[in-house]
């Protein structure tokens, strides 16, 4: 059965709520499905990352199929790092045949970031070529031009680096335009804590042509906020947030409150939706989403 709530809501202009759901490192999926089932109905779709940070775990396709089999919609990530064009296309066909109707294309981080740093990365095709490949499949042919027996009608998205330091908004907007031309219909941003970070890029693109979905990251501690502010170049954590956490009587509750407020802000600012990323605190998804 093809689940299409995500696409339907985007098309209607309703605010979509996505949650990130990492597959396990191992074959026991009970924890993952347990977290997902708890918020079934509150989340429109689960975004299943493809071995983020180059850490080996169950593939996105595998994790997504487990969730789909329990009636939960997923957006599966497809990544240029580990598969060549033959494997990518094959997995895309498998994904659609298993009821997955939305994909998000990502470049993938270098293996040196992860836990298999001796691995050889693939990068047979890059992100833009992958988007083009998905569009080609949608049109009923593979990258070699051979006709398919049934074409996958994917809704396709991509990552966007909007707001990263050192990249001009002009370059970023141009990059988004190229991805839109290649068939991307939604963009998921890196974690954003304020609209200001992405505003210079948004001014330069046609918002009606594409859906922008910011990632809302649930901070877990003051230390995490400070660490990210100092060490994660592409994520801007405002000083005010760290100060707020420092003085909060219950920091965990404050972290949840910040995530709730961030979601509300993005909704009020007219974004198409949000992706909630809880990085191991999936048991908090329900609490964050309550009442927002």
């Amino acid at each position: 059965m093809h689940l299409m709530q995500f696409r339907k809501k985007l098309e209607e202009g309703s605010f979509v709520v996505l949650a990130e759901m990492e597959p396990p490192k191992g074959v026991d999926t009970t924890v993952m499905t347990g977290h997902a089932v708890k918020v079934k109905g509150k989340v429109d779709a689960f975004l299943v990352p493809e071995m983020s940070n180059a850490v080996m775990r169950m593939s996105a396709l595998g994790g997504a199929m487990v969730l789909q089999s329990k009636g939960m919609e997923t957006i599966v990530q497809v990544c240029c790092r580990d598969r060549n064009r033959i494997a990518l296309q094959a997995d895309l066909l498998a994904a659609y045949a298993c009821g997955i109707t939305s994909v998000m294309a990502v470049t993938g981080q270098e293996p040196s970031y992860g836990d298999h740093h001796q691995a050889r990365s693939v990068y047979d095709i890059d992100l833009l070529e992958l988007l083009t490949a998905v569009s080609t499949l949608r049109n009923g042919r593979d990258m070699a031009g051979v006709e398919l027996l049934g074409a996958p009608d994917f809704l396709m998205g991509a990552s966007v680096n909007a707001g990263a330091p050192g990249i001009s908004p002009e370059v970023e907007a141009d990059d988004m335009k190229k991805k839109i031309d290649a068939g991307a219909r939604f963009f998921i941003t890196p974690p954003l804590f304020s609209v200001e970070t992405i505003a210079p890029v948004l001014k330069r693109i046609d918002r009606s042509a594409v859906h922008i979905i910011p990632t809302v990251l649930l901070l877990k501690s003051l230390g995490m906020a400070r660490y990210m502010a100092r060490n994660v170049a592409h994520i801007h954590v405002p000083d005010a947030l760290a100060e707020r956490l420092e003085t909060a009587p219950d920091r965990v509750r404050e972290c949840v409150k910040i995530a709730k407020e961030t979601i509300s802000t993005f909704r009020a600012e007219g974004f198409s939706g949000v992706l909630l990323s809880t990085m191991g605190w999936e048991h908090k998804i329900a609490e964050v989403l309550e009442g927002v």
């Binding site: 270098e110 293996p111 040196s112 740093h117 001796q118 691995a119 050889r120 990365s121």
Partner: peptide, 12 residues
């Protein structure tokens, strides 16, 4: 032994 590709282009 399994090849360490980090000295190849895999390591940038």
């Amino acid at each position: 032994p399994i090849k360490d590709w980090s000295t190849d282009r895999a390591g940038g």
